[in-house]
Every structure is written in structure tokens, then in C-alpha cells.
Simulated scan of single mutants.
Amino acid sequence: MTEHQIVDSSFTAIINAPIEKIDIPEWCFGLSEQEYQSCSPAHIAAGFTTAPDGKRMSINVEVIGGSMIVEHYIETFGSKSHLILDSTSDVFTPTGRTTIHVTWELSVKDAGGGKCEFTNRVRTFATEDLLNFLARQGIPFDLFRAQRQPASIAHNQGETPLFAASIERAALGN
């Protein structure tokens, strides 16, 4: 799948709370829609449910690079300091609907002095659906990737410190 990777973007921010007060899965699966919206002007809606196999699931709606994306994140790994979510996400573009695969990874590590370093990593990959969608339009994958990366990277860079602030509020109970 790495040959069809679109983006691998990772940014960090400081959380002013001790690591023992952080619980990323609890934050993620309890995130109110208003709190999610406060973490980026591109965030439209959020909710949580369970997947058919009983795993926790976060549903996020956002607009990146002019395309609305509905993400169906299923928890694939979860500990208080590390969460990995995978989604085959619906992408609504001006030329139609397709899908991409997104892996969203959130983690914290102790930075000393009652602080943590938060990392927000997002990796996206082309699905067969996306490759066929691009081929029908005569768009080479490399061109699509080059055009998609700046918007995705900028989005991740902008939301990372706001996610960190939200996790900090949750950890400190305010």
C-alpha cells in the first residue's frame, strides 16, 4: 500500500499536563461536536459509535482542499498514551464521490516538568476506488498526490496544536 501513499504528515505540540492525566482514547471517543469544531475551521461534525465487530468508532466530517471527507475511524490500537485509528473514508469532490484510506495516529510522551509532547500523524493511501476514479478522469496518481499533499499537510499542521489544547483541557478537567 505504501506505493499508493498520498500523504504522511506528522506534527507535534506541547500539552501542559502530566502524562498520567492523559487518556487519548477517552478524549477521542468522548469528543463533543463543538470541541471537535474548535480544533479546526475545516471540522464540520463528529460523533462516535461502534463498528459491526464491536470496536470503538469515531465519525468525523471535515473539508480538506475543497473536498468534504466523511471519516469512519475504527480503533486498531488503544492505550492511554497512544491511539491508532483506520478509516476507509468517503471523499466528495466536484467531479464525484470516491474513497481513500486514512490512518490517524495520536500519541503522547512525557516531556518532563508535568508536560507531554503530543504527536498527530496522518497517513493517507489511495484505494482501488480512488485509482479507478482518477483513471476515468485521466489524472495521473503522481499529479493527484502532488496536488493533495499541501492541503493535507497544512490541515494537520493547523489542527495539531488545537487538538493538544483540547486534550490538555480534558486532562485537567476544564
Score class of each variant (00 low, 15 high):
142 D>M: 15
76 T>H: 04
144 F>H: 00
132 N>L: 13
126 A>Y: 06
14 I>P: 07
28 C>T: 15
109 K>D: 07
37 Q>P: 10
55 K>D: 06
113 G>D: 10
75 E>I: 05
72 H>N: 11
62 E>Y: 14
60 N>L: 15
77 F>S: 13
126 A>W: 02
54 G>Q: 12
4 H>V: 11
152 S>E: 11
42 A>C: 13
76 T>R: 08
13 A>R: 03
152 S>H: 14
167 I>T: 05
94 P>R: 00
35 E>R: 12
60 N>K: 14
135 A>K: 15
34 Q>H: 11
90 D>A: 13
34 Q>C: 06
47 G>D: 01
42 A>T: 07
137 Q>L: 01
60 N>Y: 13
60 N>Q: 15
102 V>T: 13
11 F>L: 10
56 R>A: 05
137 Q>K: 06
75 E>H: 09
90 D>Y: 11
63 V>S: 13
89 S>T: 05
48 F>P: 05
133 F>L: 09
165 A>M: 02
158 G>N: 15
157 Q>L: 11
66 G>Q: 08
114 G>A: 08
35 E>D: 14
157 Q>K: 11
152 S>C: 13
15 I>P: 01
49 T>Y: 02
39 C>L: 04
173 G>R: 08
3 E>W: 10
97 R>V: 12
96 G>R: 08
49 T>K: 00
5 Q>G: 11
72 H>Y: 12
